[in-house]
Design a protein around this nucleic acid. Sequence first.
RNA 1: GCACCCGUAGCUCAGCUGGAUAGAGCGCUGCCCUCCGAAGGCAGAGGUCGCACGUUCGAAUCGUGCCGGGUGCGCCA
Length: 585
Amino acid sequence: MNVYAIFADHVRAAVTALQEEGRVPAGLALARVVVEPPRDASNGDLATNAAMVLAKDAGMKPRDLAVLIAGRLEGLPQVTKVEVAGPGFINISLDPAFWPTVLAEVLRKGTAFGASTLGAGEPMNVEYVSANPTGPMHVGHCRGAVFGDAMASLLAFAGYKVTREYYINDAGAQVDVLARSAFLRYREALGEEIGAIPEGLYPGDYLVPVGEALTKEHGPALAALPEADWLPVVKDAAITAMMAMIREDLAALGISFDVFFSERSLTQGEDRVGATIAQLRTSGEVYEGRLPPPKGAPIEDWEDREQILFRSTDFGDDVDRPLVKSDGSYTYFAGDIAYHKDKFDRGFLRMIDVWGADHGGYVKRMQAAVKAVSGGTASLDIELCQLVRLTRNGEPVRMSKRAGSFVTLREVVDEVGRDAVRFMMLFRKNDAPLDFDLGKVIEQSRENPVFYVQYAHARAQSILRNGRVAFPDLPQGREGFADADLARLDDSGEIGLLMRLAAWPRLVEQAATAREPHRVAFFLYELASDFHAQWNKGKDLPHLRFIMENDLGLTMPRLGLVHGVATVLASGLALLGVEAVQEMK
RNA sequence: GCACCCGUAGCUCAGCUGGAUAGAGCGCUGCCCUCCGAAGGCAGAGGUCGCACGUUCGAAUCGUGCCGGGUGCGCCA
């Protein structure tokens, strides 16, 4: 139950009724009408902008219209007062017994409270990570991985049928480099002295086991072959090993995918990239032409030649984009078009790609491609994640020798834990740079939001455990508290918590619509803050404690509130992929 | 040169898709601290929302132009 959505319907119904009575003109656009919690509690429980939004089209003064609408709302159940205020706000006050009914719903539904039908079961493809299979994941991949995963969870909670997908870039020149690097480790495993890893090859020692495995399987046989013969063998083995490693890294972060899609599969057997280009040529989106040399940094070996181009300028891109390289092979973009066409062919009209900010220049052409390939019926949202600056107590973190030149995701997760990494990656808008301090995220203080939110959940569980000590006959599960006399929750802090819980379904929909899982993290922080504050209140004011010795009648609703807070905390943490702990270690 | 992202308190950042007196943490100041669970609590000061026009009942939010920072700019993935 989304209180605000329900009352928005009431307001629209009120306007419709007035229209039928002829007191308000027909044909008003009701979509802009919203019901929100007023910022200031003195303005009631709910507020709507309806009169101000509709006044112009209705040809009426906002306050006059507001009075008419307000008159209609007064008769609604639960409504105790309706006031017109300011430029035309309609402020609605509810029966004090209303907010506890929301808690009763939380207690009955559990973590299903807040789930939305917004997505209406529509298929939604979320592609993220898609790191090259050339080594372990590093911290740079981490943010996109966590962001994509949390957003997929959020969209699923909001009612979409989500598929999580990883595109394996196993077709380009980089995997050839990987193969040559692995071959060197293979010769090393055979006993050969290889010396320093040459420039241009991957130096990380994660390839050592790949070389050893190759000797076990092939003995020295590969070393005698020309590159053209050993390369495919070594490449397959190396990619398989790298993907296994990446899956382990992802598992360490609590991430798994529904689909791993291989770039190579697009050209193995039938040439699906070529087929896609042919299709676009038929529809007029592909042509032969010349491009002007790019502005900015001059390109030394610029060669003006006729090439096969995708007409992305038709969709708002700056220039048309080449699909075939000078050596005749497809560009990465060409493969990506075929890949997104495959998503479309699998029934996805809605797709989301999560990329690093350094790929920002690629957004328009990819969106153009999805439009072209789907005849304009599919849409692609692209969310960019800015860089992460990794520090330890303010100092930049050193590079890892083992991995070659970067800090691996695994090192970070091993040091501070999955929960801290995930929460901090989500405690910032994705399009803003993020400072991640290894020292601060394990601090146990209010400064550290990970701790603060988890502590709130642990504290709630602790209170419930203590409650069962004081009152051994308390219900076991949260449902047993739904029938308590919840209307006794009348302290301002308690009501504030109830209103916060009531805001959860609305926040889910907003965060899902905006593709912004960070809003969930901030919401949880605020809920935790409210909850800690109420607990602290009980320090000075014993009559406000959650557990009232000798007063089961009051303890029951208060423990119901604690259950409700814990439930929503757990629900939100689950979306973020962070554990709702029973106690702090 | 062009495109995209970002400019909000001293610092790090939120700001509910245009609403009422712009919020939080840290830092600063002042009180309190034998509490169901230590890892503190409460309160206060502090902002021309980069600048300027515009859109309208109403702008931190939308548009345009500047200023400042970041990212990217055939045949890399």
